[in-house]
């Protein structure tokens, strides 16, 4: 089993089609929608796919054929830990538990694997030490 995170852009004419349903059903994938946004112009989705590497490959091929734009999740949250005072204000708005205080040292921990890049922590940091990289 492998995991892959991608950013999908759906052209307007695809928005009402059951693309994700077909992706799950025909390719035996476990999907986790991390973010989704529909605007009048397009639909955007940050998707985590889990399955065999062959199935993921086939699934992405299906999306490509449907004219869904696929981009790797290149964004990253950047935390300046050298300057961080471990106050914990960012943890208050982190819904996935990616940010936490180490139970022993009380130092701020950032678990990148749990981060869904929602960006809520950026304004929550009083020292302005968190940035999102595109």
């Amino acid at each position: 089993m492998v995991q892959k995170r991608v950013v999908l852009t759906f052209p307007q004419d695809l928005i009402e089609q059951p693309i994700i349903y077909k992706l799950v059903k025909d390719h035996d994938l476990v999907l986790n929608i991390l973010r989704a946004q529909v605007t009048p112009e397009e639909g955007k989705m940050v998707l985590e796919l889990e399955g065999s590497s062959d199935n993921i490959k086939e699934g992405l091929k299906y999306l490509h054929e449907k004219k869904v734009k696929i981009e790797p999740l290149a964004k990253d949250i950047k935390l300046n830990d050298k300057e961080c005072i471990s106050c914990g204000a960012c943890i208050a708005v982190c819904s996935t538990g990616a940010l936490s205080l180490d139970t022993k040292t009380a130092k701020l921990n950032f678990d990148r694997d749990k981060c869904i890049l929602c960006g809520c922590c950026i304004p929550a940091c009083p020292l302005r030490l968190i940035e999102i990289e595109i």
Binding site: I85, S86, G88, C90, I91, L101
Partner: peptide
């Protein structure tokens, strides 16, 4: 502990003062 209970709801907690620095 990371959570408290308010009106039957499990509410996540966060500190805004630094225990790390206090230590």
């Amino acid at each position: 502990s990371g959570y408290i209970n308010i009106k039957g709801k499990k509410v996540p907690t966060a500190s805004i003062s630094s225990l790390y620095k206090a230590r």
